[in-house]
């Protein structure tokens, strides 16, 4: 094949996959809105994506906040404005770091597992077996993850924010001596409801991205990433990478739109 038609074929196959991926999201929402929803599986996935991520979120949130306490204090003290440490920590966590880091952690912890589980079900023909029983594989495998991620992500982000703000207080407020009154008082007067909402919108959309990308990569294991264990491992890696990249790109667009 000459180079031009190679480029053409490559572009077409990429476009085709993007189309399949878009359709996948559309179908997930469609079956999410048409009952019956498999409530038992939704609860199981909330347990897996949400509850089992709380320790990771607690740890990453606390330490991010503590780092912010240090870095924020040193930056602000150069301008003699340490008093604004509270709003600085609060705003960066609530608007940006909370949603983004939680989403990246959940991608690594739960998203990879979702992609691997669905991928293994694909290569061992369990998805075919489901379809052959006259059951809809989206309803059983994809929709519960989507709903669970939409419910879990904002809650995990909220936990991350709270831990982070407490961590920032521990370092900035206690250790470096900003003081509780200043830290929380300034935070309360500078952080607005719209900032909180921005964080919630972001975490909701990140939840959708995680469930979408990871389910999609697992679901199409044999077709797009190859057969056997290697296909699953590729699908899992691609799911984590694509989901993380999409989260950061989408974060940029949301930030610029909500600015």
């Amino acid at each position: 094949m000459d180079p031009i038609s190679q480029i053409g074929a490559f572009t077409l196959s990429r476009l085709y996959r993007m189309g399949v991926m878009g359709l996948f999201l559309f179908k997930s929402f469609l079956y999410g809105f048409i009952p019956p929803v498999k409530v038992g599986r939704v609860i199981k996935q909330i347990h897996f994506i949400g509850l089992q991520s709380t320790l990771v979120i607690f740890l990453t949130g606390s330490f991010s906040g503590m780092v912010l306490g240090f870095q924020g204090y040193y930056s602000l003290s150069r301008f003699g404005s340490e008093a604004f440490l509270g709003p600085m920590v609060g705003l960066s966590l609530i608007k940006e770091l909370g949603p983004v880091i939680s989403a990246l952690m959940v991608t690594g912890r739960a998203g990879s597992a979702i992609a691997a589980e669905i991928g293994i079900m694909r290569i061992t023909e369990q998805i075919d077996a489901l379809e052959l029983m006259g059951l809809n594989s989206f309803r059983y495998l994809v929709v519960p993850n989507l709903i669970a991620a939409i419910i879990s992500m904002p809650l995990l982000t909220a936990i991350f924010d709270v831990c982070g703000i407490a961590g920032g207080y521990l370092i900035g407020g206690k250790l470096l001596g900003v003081g509780a009154g200043t830290y929380f008082g300034e935070m309360a007067s500078y952080v607005e409801m719209s900032d909180v909402m921005e964080g919630i919108y972001k975490s909701l959309s990140f939840g959708i991205i995680i469930a979408w990308v990871c389910c999609y990569k697992g679901y199409y294991t044999t077709i797009f990433t190859g057969f056997g264990a290697e296909g699953v491992s590729k699908a899992t890696t691609q799911a984590v990478v694509l989901s993380s990249v999409l989260i950061l790109v989408w974060d940029y667009f949301m930030t610029s739109a909500l600015f």
Binding site: E125, Q126, A129, E131, L132, M133, G134
Partner: peptide
């Protein structure tokens, strides 16, 4: 498909 049964070569349990 409700009226159909299929035994997969690998079981697919």
């Amino acid at each position: 498909r409700d009226r159909m049964g299929f035994l997969f070569q690998g079981g697919a349990l």
